[in-house]
Amino acid sequence: MIFRRIIYSALLVGLLAGLVLSVAQITTVNPIIFAAETYEVAGHDHGSHDHSAEAWAPEDGFERTLYTVFANVSAGIGFAAILLALMSHLQLSGITTLSLPKGILWGGAGFVAVFVAPAIGLPPEIPGIEAAALEKRQLWWVLAVVGVAIGLLIISFAPIKYKALGLVALIIPYIVNIPHHEGPAFAHPDPSAVEALTSLHSQFIVNSALSNLLFWLALGLVAAWVLNRWVFKGIVVNHNDARA
């Protein structure tokens, strides 16, 4: 069962990449989130995001960090399963043969599709930032990620006559209406707080981009390694037959 092998492998790849992300996030990204939240609490109430009394939330400190690590490892497992499914399908079809350098390229492509592509239209957000309706942004996020991912896959692996379709898929997310927020990014009444939040936001974009790059390079590299080491173990002969 290649399905079972992919899932087990995704657990391992996701655990490793999620831990890499967690170290980067806890040291460079979370301090910015916490700093921004102090302005959020002191400033205005954020409609959809009032931590109302009845809703459970992890305690600040160890418990909150633990849930962050758990969420990161889960995200790693999810992305790893998608990567491994695509990698194994393309390798079984004889379209590509994964190697560690190619794993790094896959990781880079994942970073471009899942972090850079949506960030071009909607920059990463810190707590307290003003933004358009959540559902619209989530919908556009999905469109950007899926469009750019499919575009990169077509350009990389489809026959030459179809490659133009890849360009179309890359462009579509940016010609539709991107749900931007109209007006200032921060509605805090104190101008010095707005200045501090603006500076935190630029630092956040840099630090989260670097953390995500590390995350995706780890995902691509370990996924490529695990694919040849374990997922395809014992079925290499059949793969060669398929290509013959």
């Binding site: 939330a57 969420a71 957000e125």
Partner: peptide, 16 residues
């Protein structure tokens, strides 16, 4: 949302 809050921000998912 609360459990994954910091991860959603760090991974640049639309959050609030």
């Amino acid at each position: 949302h609360n459990a994954a809050h910091d991860s959603r921000h760090a991974l640049a998912f639309p959050c609030h």
